[in-house]
């Protein structure tokens, strides 16, 4: 493990860059995914069709293909940015489809009878949404949404492999190819870096799940 300890500062830098990718992509994909989910459950047919198209496109395409598309397709449309931008954008587009489906399934899990019951005891529409439908939907959304987000944490490694530079993966690449360290210890170091993110996130998710769980 000594190669890892010798280059600990590089690993810390890489870890922080990976963390920045993750935070930006998390905020972006949650916002975009919620918007697409709103499209998919809206009463407006073109928006619904667009949402369906979006989800079936990005859910069925490998993240690597989405990333290549962003990096090679968008410049043709006149959008020229850094690889960091394209990498994070690709990750956001890809993850938004999964976020959308998690949210939509949560909303659909509330049975229509709940809303009918709310209306029949005299709550008006916004009250029934606020007190009856949304609290239940949000709780059901937590576990699937959490696992989507943790999967996104792991997918950030693909963005690194794609060539963002400076993240955990690139640290491993630099150390093995440019400085001639052996692959195994260096990439175990990279793996530990990711475990430092995903294991606490998984534990946190379990705590939250237990807190919001409802008996049905």
């Amino acid at each position: 493990m000594s190669p890892v300890i010798e280059n600990l500062d590089l690993y810390v830098d890489g870890f922080l860059t990976s963390l920045s990718i993750i935070v930006v992509a998390m905020v972006g994909s949650l916002l975009l995914g919620t918007l697409i989910a709103a499209f998919r459950v809206s009463p407006v047919p073109p928006l619904r069709a667009f949402g369906t198209f979006w989800v079936s496109t990005f859910r069925n395409t490998p993240l690597s293909v989405v990333l290549f598309f962003c990096a090679f397709g968008l410049p043709e449309l006149g959008i020229n940015r850094t690889f960091y931008f394209f990498g994070v954008l690709g990750l956001i587009l890809y993850t938004s489809a999964f976020v959308c489906e998690a949210i939509r399934s949560g909303i659909n899990s509330v049975s229509a009878g709940q809303a009918e019951a709310a209306r029949s005891i005299g709550l008006n529409f916004s009250q029934s949404l606020r007190f009856v439908v949304l609290p239940q939907a949000l709780r059901t959304v937590v576990p699937p949404l959490g696992s989507v987000i943790i999967a996104m944490f792991k997918n950030s490694a693909v963005v690194g492999a794609f060539g963002v530079g400076g993240d955990l993966w690139s640290t491993g690449q630099t150390l093995t190819s440019a400085r001639g360290y052996e692959t195994l210890p260096i990439f175990i170091g990279v793996a530990i870096g990711f475990l430092l993110i995903t294991l606490p996130a998984g534990a946190l998710l379990q705590v939250i799940e237990r807190k919001v769980a409802i008996a049905r």
Binding site: K154, S156, A157, W169, F187, G202
Partner: peptide
Amino acid sequence: VEVFRGLPVVVLVYLCVRALPDA
């Protein structure tokens, strides 16, 4: 199980393709 679940699949593939021969 928890460790393997927490690792990015691309890192695992890299380790298996590149590091297994070294090992």
